[in-house]
């Protein structure tokens, strides 16, 4: 019974942890959307800033990956 309860908590926790991925989605969308808005205003400057775009996306995404990692840890390692 206790094992079952722990398993239940584990799964619920893993599911909750994946909510964090939504935040990463919002963040990445924000970065990309703002980049596009800026790029349409000044297309000539856009090409030089793609590196910055990818770095920004990477930072935003990393946090989502952290929550995914928590979910994986709960599922497989706890």
């Amino acid at each position: 019974m206790e094992g079952e309860l722990a398993l239940l908590g584990k799964y619920i926790g893993a599911g909750l942890a994946t909510i964090g991925l939504g935040g990463a989605g919002i963040g990445v969308g924000h970065v990309a959307g703002n980049f596009l808005a800026g790029a349409l205003r000044n297309p000539s400057a856009a090409a030089g800033q793609t590196a910055t775009l990818f770095v920004g996306i990477a930072f935003a995404e990393a946090l989502g990956i952290f929550s995914f990692l928590i979910a994986l840890l709960l599922m497989f390692a706890v």
């Binding site: 990477a58 930072f59 995404e61 990393a62 990956i65 952290f66 995914f68 994986l72």
Partner: peptide, 16 residues
């Protein structure tokens, strides 16, 4: 930490 988890996590997630 973020440098390594980002790479490993992305790859692991996709394959899983």
């Amino acid at each position: 930490v973020s440098h390594s988890i980002r790479l490993g996590g992305n790859l692991m997630a996709g394959h899983a």
